[in-house]
Amino acid sequence: MKAREWLNVTLIALASLTCHDAGAGSGRADFAAGFELIKAGELQAAVAKFQTGLKVEPTNALAHFYLAEAYRGLQRIDEAKSHYQKSLDLDPSGPVAQDAKARLAQLVPGKADRVTSSETAAGGSQAGKSAEPAPGSLWTEPTTGMEFVWVPSGCFVMGSGDGDIDERPPHKVCLKGFYLGRYEVTQAQYQEITGKDPSFYKGPNLPVEQVSWDEAKSFVGALANRSNERIRLPSEAEWEYACRGGEQSELCGRGSADDLAWYRPNSGMTTHSVGQKRANAWGLHDMSGNVWEWVEDCYNSYQGAPTDGSASITGDCSRRMFRGGGWYNSPASVRSATRGGFEPSYRNNDLGFRVARTLP
C-alpha cells in the first residue's frame, strides 16, 4: 500500500472514533493530505489543509491534534495550545487524548490548564514525550535506504487471555518511543551489509529468510557500526506494541488476515515482496505474516516479565523469540499475540527479521 493510501486509512479509521456526524460532509481528504505534509516537513502547507478540512468537520478531534502539531513545529505556540485543548475537549478519552495532555503540560509548565496533573506520558516525563516525532514519521537510513517508522511512547496490554498458554497472563507494558523498520529486512539490504543472501526464495525485495538469531544480531551490529546509529533488534514488547498500532487488535492492523498478511490461505506457499499488504495505523507493513521475525528476547514466560518494554534476557536463553507468523502458517499464527521461539542458530525459509533504532 502506498503512503497516501495508508494515511487515508489511518485518518479515516481514527476519525470515526471521534463520534462526529459522518453525514455532515467530509474534510478527510484534506486531513490525509495535511498529515502527509507534516511527515514531509511542509508545516505551513499542512496548516492550510487542516484548516480547510476543519471548516467542513469542525468537531474532528484528531484533525485538531495534528493541526496543533503543525503549529508547534512552526513555533506558533498559542495556536498549538488552542488546538491541543480543542482536541482534548472534543474527545477526552480518544486515541490522541494522552498525547494532547502531554503537549499541553509541556507548553504550559507548572499549570496544565484543564489537563489533570496526574496524567504522565508512558516511560518518562510528559516533557520527554512532547519532543517526540509524530506517530508514523519516517526516517531513512542513508547507507541502505532502509525506512524506519516512529512508534510513539505509550502503554498497552501485552499478551492474550484467550490464546496459547505462553501468551498469558495479559499484562500492562509502558514503553518509550522508538523507530522500527517499516518493512522486514529485504534480501538486497541484507546483502548490502553482509555480502551474502542465504534465502531460499530469491528476489531483492523479498524478505531475507533462513537467517538465524545469531546472524540477525551480526547484521544489526554491522549496520549500527556503518551508520553510526543505535540499530538493534526490537524487544518482544516493542514488537507487539508496534504491531497493534495503538489498538488492542487481534491482527497487526485493521482488516482481515487477507488484507494484512501473507499466510497459508493466500501466499501460494512462498514469500512475497515487502509492503504489498495493508499497513497498520503507524505505517508498518507485514507485521502479520510473510516471515516470522526474530526479536531480542529469550523465550520466557510472561510471569515476572519486564513492564517497561525492555527485552527479557534472563532465565533460560537456550531459545530466542520470533513473532508475527509466516507464509506457511494458519490464521491463528499471524495474530498479534502469537509467540514462537527456537535455538539462536535455527534457520528456516519462513523466518527473517526487522530492525529497530533508538534515538540518542
Rank of each mutant, 00 (worst) to 15 (best):
L223C: 10
L206H: 15
A216K: 13
A224H: 07
L180A: 03
D214L: 04
Y190M: 01
V208C: 00
G181Q: 05
I231T: 14
L180R: 13
G181A: 01
Y183E: 09
D214R: 07
Q189V: 01
Q189S: 09
L180H: 10
L206M: 08
P198A: 14
A224F: 14
P234E: 11
E236R: 09
W213R: 03
S212Y: 06
G221F: 08
G221H: 12
L180M: 03
F200S: 09
A216V: 10
E209S: 15
T194P: 00
R232S: 10
T186N: 03
G221Y: 10
K196H: 11
P207S: 06
T194V: 14
S227K: 15
R232A: 08
K196G: 02
Y183H: 04
T186M: 02
V208H: 01
A222F: 05
V220K: 08
Q191K: 06
P234F: 12
L206N: 06
P234C: 11
Q187N: 02
A224G: 15
R182M: 11
S235I: 00
E192G: 05
K217A: 12
A188N: 11
N225Y: 04
F200D: 14
V185R: 07
P198K: 15
I231D: 08
F200H: 13
L233D: 15
Y201L: 08
L180G: 08
D197W: 14
E192I: 03
P198G: 13
P207D: 13
Q189K: 04
R182K: 13
R230D: 03
E229I: 04
K202A: 00
G221E: 13
P234T: 13
